[in-house]
Design a protein around this nucleic acid. Structure first.
Lengths: 196, 196, 196, 196
DNA sequence: CATGAATGAGTATTCATTCAT
DNA sequence: TATGAATGAATACTCATTCAT
């Protein structure tokens, strides 16, 4: 039943299946078969739409990153205060777990792989830099540039650190929620500490 | 060239080669051949000494963890103040990069794999718990239990977060050094904030 | 050259190649490569169609057994006398050598392996029981039940014994023919001895 | 603890371990390690005494065959009648199961392998011929040569057939005993039938 | 558009053999 | 005389890719 205009549908089907498979089996055990089976499609379709497994992996990472960006932009309105913006950034980063039931493991797999994959590393760096610069941008409205940059780096580390430890200890949603609160508390303490 | 008493020598040779190979190629691309070639030994020897690839991987993780523990214990003397102890813990955790030229990437690979490997997860959890409890133990001498526990969780997250971001951005030694200072500064600020 | 509807063709190709390889090299020296080479196919195809070497081995045994059954059923017509039926059973069992140029050696290999392989043992038992019960069924029409059972056991042993010794001494077709006549003669002598 | 004159002791230890291992695991799964472990010796000793695995296998077959021969000769006394001799031959052949707790499976493995191993085939043929000629020799004293040869061939087939079916159906000792009685009964019926 | 049959290089593992001690 | 460390060829199996339909 070949149809026209299936391209975006098929692509998304395959990306969703990839996230599921990596979360469930790990990047290592994820095969073109495990993905296509989850998508309910044939294995050949992957080469057809993504040129190969590697292409699908990269498209999946790009999708996860752009999703994170959308969540962030979606929450920003014209009249948000700098502090509200900072809270939104924290929330967006912890929401990485909600997009798919368990896409958290997927993030971690891609991080590790990015150490040995140039394209993945580039994508991951763009994202990392964006977190820092988003944070710094808001902090700058509350303190001097030097302190803002420091606060941004520390907050970014705290967010990733809390998130990572939560993922690695296979925490449930409540514990993630608790970590999100800790991160917000830390951001507030930085504002109080350096804020003018 | 069979000799007697080679067991510990060969085991260490293979563990070192594994760390090198995982750092260079990633856990995924590390094969029994890449390891044995680096060790200058035959592939069969891995089964002989570790029962298989999985056994060698686990032995390598155990080695890295025990090394971290040794670094920590090695720095502790009788007359260290709680604050000195906390600084030592931070240093030990950042020293993960120095034990082997580039064992940092290796740690990250093992973390990711631990999400899909029960034994690795168990080992990683022991280590994670030890960091928290070591920190909490020292904090308890400086503040009340509730605050100490919180401080320990936050410091652990900050240490791992700073370390992770440094690894992921392929930082050089100076940047690691800077991160270590940031971590220490954060620990000091927690002491000042909650300390009685 | 992927085509549709090749499944049964490929399966039979591989089963034939297995019989050939086991006959020529023995079960022990038969590898996935020796089979796929004989079949003119790649080694991967075996996993594709049979899940692995073991699956192909079992399918091959099943094929040989079902073939034996077919030869037997094929010879039976409505108006055969019990004695004619008994002769047909003997013939069918000796025909094991004709189905494939030299499938006899293959049978022997599978028998030996059945001592250490549950599934093969099950299959081999079904076959062995069928020979006994087919013989007993015909004998019962010629003598009392007790004698029929005895005659069946003795005839089955005589058939297998003559066949085995012919195989082990690498007999030619004439000698097989002679053994078949001996077996038939023995069956007739049992009928004369016990027959009412 | 190197000692002199250990050669025959070690050889027998290894042959016994081979019989055990082949019976338990099958010829296919029997390795130099499974044998040397059962013998409580090192793996290297096998090359030392038998030149390799193949040499040990052949020595083991030779041992089983010579044992069968000994059992037969041992039972023969000066004043045995031809019929007694025939019964002894049957008994000796069924005793193949008693030499080692379960050496029966071992025989079958070697038979199958003899189809693809010249030396094994030679040994097995000598044994097979001896059975026939021993039987024929005794029969000749009771009937004319033609009938004796026929009777020998049929008896040999009956003995092997009954024994084979008993082994393949994993019969217990009682069932083996029953088969031995059936074989003896058959020999007696042949004597009655052709005997002058 | 989409399938899935077919390939074959690559992987971990096994194991008979060798040989320094 | 005896060991067992070390080897590396061989084996079964996996899986990304290709391509005829």
């Amino acid at each position: 039943m070949p149809k026209v205009g299936m391209q975006p549908v098929r692509r998304q089907q395959l990306i969703d299946a990839t996230i599921e498979s990596v979360a469930e089996l790990g990047l290592r055990a994820t095969t073109i078969n495990s993905i296509s089976k989850k998508a309910g499609l044939s294995s050949g379709i992957i080469s057809h739409y993504f040129g190969g497994k590697q292409g699908l992996i990269e498209a999946t990472v790009r999708y996860l990153l752009s999703n994170l960006k959308q969540v962030l932009l979606g929450g920003l309105k014209a009249d948000t205060t700098p502090e509200q913006r900072l809270m939104l950034i924290v929330e967006a980063n912890f929401s990485r777990l909600q997009q798919q039931s368990n896409a958290t493991k997927t993030w971690l797999s891609f991080w590790a792989q990015s150490m040995h994959d140039i394209e993945l590393h580039r994508l991951q760096n763009v994202n990392s830099k964006r977190l820092s610069s988003n944070l710094a941008c808001s902090y700058k409205q509350l303190m001097n540039i030097e302190d803002a940059r420091n606060a941004a780096q520390l907050s970014a580390a705290m967010i990733d650190g809390l998130w990572l430890r939560a993922v690695l200890s296979k925490s449930d949603e409540d514990e993630f929620e608790h970590c999100e609160q800790l991160a917000k508390g830390y951001v507030r303490s930085l504002i109080k500490q350096y804020g003018s």
